[in-house]
Write a protein that binds this DNA or RNA. Structure first.
Lengths: 187, 187
DNA sequence: ATAAATATCAAACAAAAAGTTTTATAAACA
DNA sequence: TGTTTATAAAACTTTTTGTTTGATATTTAT
């Protein structure tokens, strides 16, 4: 029972997202004015206020949109592919997703908005990561599971940030190889 | 040859740092007005502008001050203690430092300013972490060393954030134990 | 202890940005 | 095709920023 959204609204959201990303590449989030966003998006300022409270509100909506995209890609893959190695599969989807939207992710990370990203990554990856770690020595030790997953996800994000900021330091394939070595597999 | 700083300036900085922390506990950094800061700090707004360009400038100065404190504590410990296990020693200092300034760190992390923290942690911990990992299987694999350190530091920060946000979930001692198990030691 | 230096305050000001309101127009919907 | 509704335009108020002035108080240095 999803309500149909007016095409004009869809379009307005899109140009607002794009304008925000463009501007975040160029300058600090703090320094971006709502009038800047509207100017780049080619919409009226009153239209902005019809949709969002402020620029932070817009940023959150944009990131939420990103998360939904990733979730769809993961879901689709789960239906098509019935691979056994969930975690590596997950990493591949994630890395491709980030690579395709590199500009967007770069803008977010450059502006130090990564806390939000880590939260959504925890959300999205938890099950696959646990499937990887299951029956592992570390999990069998008495460390709480949520600590373990937070630890490895923190590591993944940390390297991911580095990769996004320095595109040509290593390839996607190398990245997957690194994660595969750094995150303990089942025994 | 360190220049003497006017006592009034020292005092002004201190009240500004405190005011910023207080406000960051209460609301989003984005929503904090310079006039708010001055009101809490009990200083004139023109005095603020005599020292800082904007609130972000103030935040950076505050975090830089924090980093200097930690570096001093580490340095002092290195002179007094001649323990062999540098990494565990480092963790102890770090955790105590964060614990003592928990409010401050909480404010920073709550406001998603952790990118800055990770950078300074990389700065501050690199040598001790490498001493831990040296002669380890992972380091002997062909993963670049900076990738490995970023990975583990990301993990440490990720858990650290969790610990700061949920004080009573586990003790400092447990925290050190977790890190000790999660980060591979020498062979 | 005193003079010189300077950081702060107070208050008024200008300028920029945020946020609101109204009416007209154009686009999407059903 | 008629109705609904999102956007545009423009003028306006309010808030917040940032600057400037001269008076006052505090610190430093002699």
């Amino acid at each position: 029972m999803k309500e149909k959204i007016d095409l004009r609204v869809v379009k307005t959201n899109k140009v607002l997202f794009n304008a925000l990303i463009t501007l975040m590449e160029q300058k600090d989030f703090e320094k971006i004015k709502i009038s800047d966003i509207c100017e780049v998006a080619l919409i009226n300022r009153s239209t902005f206020y019809a949709h969002y409270e402020d620029k932070y509100d817009l940023l959150l909506a944009m990131i939420d949109n990103l998360k939904q995209n990733l979730e769809n890609e993961l879901k689709q893959n789960k239906e098509e592919n019935i691979s056994k190695n969930y975690f590596i599969e997950f990493l591949k989807i994630l890395i491709n997703h980030v690579d395709e939207k590199r500009t967007t992710y770069y803008s977010i990370l450059k502006n130090d908005k990564n806390g939000i990203l880590i939260d959504f990554l925890i959300d999205v990856s938890n099950r696959d990561l646990i499937s990887r770690l299951k029956n592992n020595n570390i999990v069998k030790s008495n460390i709480p599971l949520d600590i373990i997953t937070k630890f490895y996800l923190g590591g993944i994000v940390s390297i991911g940030i580095d990769w996004i900021k320095n595109k040509d330091k290593y390839t996607k394939e190398e990245l997957i190889l690194y994660f595969d070595k750094l995150i303990p597999d089942k025994i």
